[in-house]
């Protein structure tokens, strides 16, 4: 494994700071409360439809309180992608454990995301079960 580059260290430090601040904020303030200061989804505010990131703050809030089931009910795809992203970044950096190889081969195909993200977007807004499970709440 090669040594970390200067920009990598900077990014890592920024992410770590953001994570600490984010967890602190989510432990002390509730994005479910009326008039909270967490950024809202502009797409949802203007159109009333769910976007792919809708429910992310509430999911992270649930996660910061250890409620994984609730986190999944708020934004299931985000909860799946969240642990994958560090692995994907490491993969791009050349850290490729053999045991993860079959999974990474699927996940690192951009075509998957080209289909999955728009499909998820539409599916969340369908009012019928099981699609309604994808919407926040």
């Amino acid at each position: 494994m090669q040594a970390l580059r200067a920009t990598d260290k900077l990014v890592l430090a920024t992410v770590a700071c953001a994570a600490v601040v984010g967890v602190w904020l989510l432990r002390h303030y509730d994005p479910n409360a009326v008039g909270n200061f967490f950024p809202k989804c502009i797409f949802h505010e203007t159109t009333g439809y769910w976007c792919i990131g809708c429910g992310l703050t509430r999911a992270l809030h649930a996660l910061a309180h250890g409620d994984i089931a609730r986190a999944f009910s708020m934004n299931p795809l985000a909860m799946i992608v969240l642990p994958l992203l560090p692995l994907m970044v490491l993969h791009e950096r050349g850290v490729r454990p053999r045991t993860l190889q079959p999974m990474m081969a699927v996940v690192m195909a951009p075509k998957l995301w080209m289909v999955l993200l728009p499909a998820y977007w539409i599916a969340r807004n369908l009012p019928w079960w099981p699609f309604s499970l994808l919407a926040p709440g």
Binding site: I42, T46, G53, V81, M88, H91, E92, M108
Partner: peptide, 23 residues
Amino acid sequence: GSVPNHLAWAIIATVLATCLCCP
């Protein structure tokens, strides 16, 4: 993988941008 495709970055940025800056 010999040429970076920046996929992880693309996904993070897309999701956050969609949520914070509408369509």
